[in-house]
Design a protein around this nucleic acid. Structure first.
Length: 883
RNA sequence: GCCGGGGUGUUGGAAUAGGUAGACAAUGGGGACUUAAAAUCCCUUGGGCUUUUGGCCCGUGCGGGUUCGAGUCCCGCCCCCGGCACCA
């Protein structure tokens, strides 16, 4: 390191002394137009006017970014292999849909992952940091319709463009592991996954009312309907009865819920959202009897209110309704009512504002516990798909039932009393839903609600008229999509053999390319004879292929395993590869997938785990959802015209500046308010770092007066250097990337002041250490700049090969600390003392301080007023007076 | 309605274990350098009062409380954001 200074000087005086500069002597042609058309920018100023000293190259981000990206590419710097000598670390960002353009939200997401990757690599981890493309999906088909392009060509060209944009940001991906879900090499294994589920009895077909999006021309899973609207296009979803494939995710409900407790690395709110979605309720199924002893099971969580049942309500779709009304005087009005309900849209039907309506069916059912006969109604608020599609009406103790009973003049019974026994039917204006004591409940009278529930359940089971039951809101995952651009469902329908899965050796079921996609109709495959007609794999007779495609969420529910074995051809992945790399240690992405993608990925992981194929039953150890990038407090959108283009920012400032700004402006989990002034600040900072490290600083301020201001010393320089190592390391570990950057700014600010000391007061070794440390700590955030500066400092290897710096405990500790002197909790003075001073000494010094003497007097005068003194070592002395 | 998360200067945000509120930036103001501008560098930037090179008071959504000491803990409210929402 002895020749550091000479190298610095050499650089100031010479042009083009690094080999790469000669090869790449200018900005890349692609960016040239954007660069030259922009208004006055610092690059021109620092290069052009010659004031900063002869031959000053200044910080040219475009040149050094191109240089280092080429080096990383040529040296395959970020290509990784399994290495049992090193601890592994798998960092993953949610892979993008290739829409055609990277937006700043992507840049933020991927920069966060890249900072962690580079940090972990420097700390000696074998880091897997891959990237790929979630490349099946509707936008490709829409582009085909709108612009007449082929979905495949549109997708491939979007990928090519976005890949370049990602590379331009300097993200340290192992590009050799890139996966594209729309390639046969990938979707072959998505189809294999389907077969695995089929074999394990977890994939089945049934005819069921499904959520149909009229705009997307396909059905949607429940998770993909938000407030009755399609998650992608916002259209109102309709109900359609269709023959559909499902995955039995509901079989995994209990595990998906229980295992949330294992996910310590997930934010509480995401776990809560999943738990709400799964929606576990513990209760009982109770079998009422119809007029001809038909079984009418109902599900309730309030078995303790069984004596309060005054009617039953069935869902309009309930199959018994038809039986009850047939040929009776109730038939016509009930049919009319059902028609009305069925014609309503999903959103209206489930809206809370919907008035509860119902109609009597004309029959009575028997309460198996009390023996009461109660009227059977149907109601628009009963959901057929949940529980048994029938509920017992307990108006005394359920708000909805209370309203319904009042509206239709049905009787109300009180069977749960509150503590002061003050409930009376006359005064009741609302249902009493809280726990209490069972009354008028036959043998159960006198029991508390909770005890009562257990007793009633036991009674039901003893008598064989019901049983304890757990019900979940989560339904099975509907995976059929009536679309073209997706992974085919590998199934063949044979007139003789029925539904036959495509044998594994026949995979992949290739998606024919080049078909004409038209708007408004079904997928072109449904009409594509060559695809649809095939031979039955069992009997060889003519058969038909399934023409629906799988939900794209199936493709993305296992891609993190494929990254471990991206080129494997014998299986979806090699056991030893996933055993080494999985689970993902850190997963970063948008919170909009909190339920959909993350729940599906957890489910598929458990299925693969049960099949003995993967080492863990949870895919993501730590989950860090990141906030949105907003502008003027609102989401960026083309229609608002407030979109920030990463390309423009890179053209104007370079990738490192954009990266640094996005890490600095907000903590990762919060929304980031885009600020044009803010990115200018990041730009100033990196230019300043350049000058401070290269030494151009000294030539940069002709005639400026004034010293460094505050006390600046070599000791102080070393202290802040080591404090910065400590602080930045701790901040990276706790994911506080914004405060890590602010610490780098503080270190740089101090170096700046130190450089303003007279030359002979500067210690070259301490300065070199401070500079090198700044560069090393900056390297995860601004990797190109850090690599370049490291090289220019003449240090050996690259900055990341140098590893992460360690701090020296001795140097971190302040020798002199400021101790606050309070009187009755109010700050009155600050004194400088040696660190580690004892309580006695601190008290004495505090009492002797000017301000305290003025306030309390000196010596015994002060002592008489003091009730007690609280001392916090190295921090504060609080003098409490007698009051 | 229920479940999460939050409310701190003009703005983005700090304060990690109850111990200096406002780090670091951005803006605004002043200055140095310059023919000039840009860039750079320095000082300053929560509010109010004041007997003004010193000092006082107020201040982290609101009202209480605990404590020597509260942005941080407790109780009660208000508001904002996100999720769920007739799930029996």
């Amino acid at each position: 390191m002895a020749d550091d200074k000479n190298r610095d000087k050499g650089h100031v005086g010479e042009k083009h002394n690094c080999p790469a500069c000669e090869d790449n002597g200018g900005p890349r042609p692609k960016l040239k137009a954007a660069v030259s058309s922009r208004p006055v920018v610092s690059r021109d100023a620092s290069v052009g006017n010659g004031k900063a000293g002869p031959g000053n190259q200044g910080y040219n981000p475009w040149q050094i970014e191109e240089k280092w990206q080429a080096i990383w590419r040529d040296n395959e710097t970020y290509v990784v292999d399994e290495d049992l000598e090193k601890p592994k670390f798998y960092v993953l960002e949610m892979f993008p849909y290739p829409s055609g353009n990277l937006h700043v939200g992507h840049v933020r997401n991927y920069t966060i992952g890249d900072v962690v990757s580079r940090y972990k690599r420097a700390r000696g981890f074998n880091v897997l940091h891959p990237m790929g493309w979630d490349s099946f999906g509707l936008p490709a088909e829409n582009a085909a319709i709108d612009r007449g392009v082929r979905p495949d060509e549109w997708t491939w060209s979007n990928i090519a463009h976005m890949r370049e944009q990602l590379k331009r940001m300097g993200f340290s991906y192992d590009w050799s592991r890139e996966v594209t879900t729309a390639f046969p090499e990938y979707y072959k294994w998505t189809q294999w996954l389907f077969l695995l589920l089929y074999e394990r009895g977890l994939a089945y077909k049934k005819t069921a009312p499904a959520n149909w999006c009229p705009t997307c021309h396909t059905v949607l899973a429940n998770e993909q309907v938000e407030q009755g609207r399609c998650w992608r296009c916002d259209s109102l979803v309709e109900k359609r009865k269709m023959d559909q494939w499902f995955f039995k995710i509901a079989d995994y409900a209990e595990r998906l819920l229980a295992d949330l407790d294992k996910l310590d690395g997930w934010p509480e709110y995401v776990k809560t959202m999943q738990a709400n979605w799964i929606g576990r309720s513990e209760g009982a199924e109770i079998v009422f009897r119809g007029p001809n002893s038909e079984e009418i099971p109902v599900f309730t969580t309030r078995q303790d209110t069984i004596y309060g049942v005054t009617y039953l309500v069935l869902a309009p779709e309930h199959p018994l309704v038809e039986k009850f009304i047939q040929g009776t005087e109730y038939e016509a009005p009930v049919r009319a009512f059902i028609d009305k309900v069925m014609r309503m849209s999903e959103i209206d039907r489930t809206s809370e504002a919907l008035e509860k309506e119902g109609i009597f069916t004309g029959v009575y059912a028997t309460n198996p516990v009390s023996g009461d006969k109660v009227p059977v109604w149907i109601g628009n608020y009963v959901i057929y798909e949940y529980g048994t599609g029938a509920v017992m009406g307990v108006p005394g103790h359920d708000e909805r039932d209370f309203h319904f009973a009042k509206k239709y003049g049905l009787p109300v019974k009180i069977v749960i009393q509150n503590e002061d026994k003050s409930l009376s039917l006359e005064e009741m204006e609302t249902a009493y839903v809280d726990p209490g004591i069972m009354v008028e409940s036959g043998p159960f009278t006198g029991l508390g609600s909770e005890e009562g529930r257990a007793e009633v359940t036991r009674f039901l089971e003893e008598k064989g008229i019901g049983r304890g039951k757990v019900t979940y809101k989560m339904r099975d995952w509907l995976i059929s999509r009536q679309r073209y651009w997706g992974a085919r469902i590998p199934v063949i329908y044979c007139p003789k053999c029925g539904t036959v899965p495509v044998p594994e050796e026949d995979l992949p079921v290739v998606l024919p390319l080049g078909l004409k996609v038209t708007s408004g109709g079904p997928s072109p495959l449904a009409r594509h004879e060559a695809f649809a007609n095939t031979a039955c794999p069992v009997c060889g007779e003519a058969a038909k292929r399934e023409t629906d495609t799988m939900d794209t969420f199936v493709c993305s529910s296992w891609y993190f395993f494929r990254f471990a074995s991206p080129h494997h051809t014998d299986a979806a992945f090699a056991k030893e590869d996933v055993d080494y790399w999985c689970p993902v240690d850190l997963y970063i992405g948008g919170v909009e997938h909190a339920v959909m993608h993350l729940l599906y990925a957890r489910f598929i992981t458990k299925v693969l785990y049960d099949a003995g194929l993967v080492p863990a039953d949870e895919p993501f150890t730590e989950l860090r959802p990141q906030g949105m990038v907003v502008r003027d407090g609102a989401k960026m959108s083309k229609s608002k015209g407030n979109v920030v283009s990463p390309d423009e920012m890179v053209a104007k400032f370079g990738a490192d500046v954009l990266r640094l700004f996005m890490m600095f402006a907000a903590p990762p989990e919060k929304d980031l308010e885009w600020s044009d002034r803010g990115i200018e600040g990041a730009n100033r900072f990196l230019h300043r770092v350049w000058r401070q490290v290269t030494g151009e600083f000294e030539n940069d301020r002709p005639g400026v007066e004034g010293g460094p201001g505050d006390a600046v010393s070599t000791e102080g320089l070393l202290r802040i250097t080591h404090q910065s190592i400590k602080k930045v390391t701790e901040d990276l570990e706790r994911f506080a990337l914004n405060t890590a950057v602010s610490q780098l700014m503080e270190l740089s600010n101090y170096i700046g002041r130190y450089l303003r000391l007279p030359k002979d007061a500067q210690d070259p070794e301490a300065l070199a250490e401070a500079r090198a440390t700044l560069v090393r700590l900056l390297s995860p955030f601004a990797p190109h700049l850090a690599h370049e500066l490291w090289e220019r400092l003449g240090c050996s290897g690259t900055v990341e090969e140098a590893g992460w710096p360690e701090y020296d405990r001795e140097l971190v500790a302040e020798r002199i600390v400021t101790v606050v002197v309070q009187v009755d909790g109010k700050v009155r003075d600050r004194i400088q003392v040696e660190a580690g001073a004892g309580d006695e000494e601190l008290t004495a010094k505090a009492l002797a301080s000017d301000r305290i003497v003025r306030l309390l007097g000196a010596g015994s005068e002060a002592r008489d007023k003091i009730a007690k003194v609280v001392v916090v070592k190295d921090k504060l002395v609080n003098i409490v007076t007698k009051r």
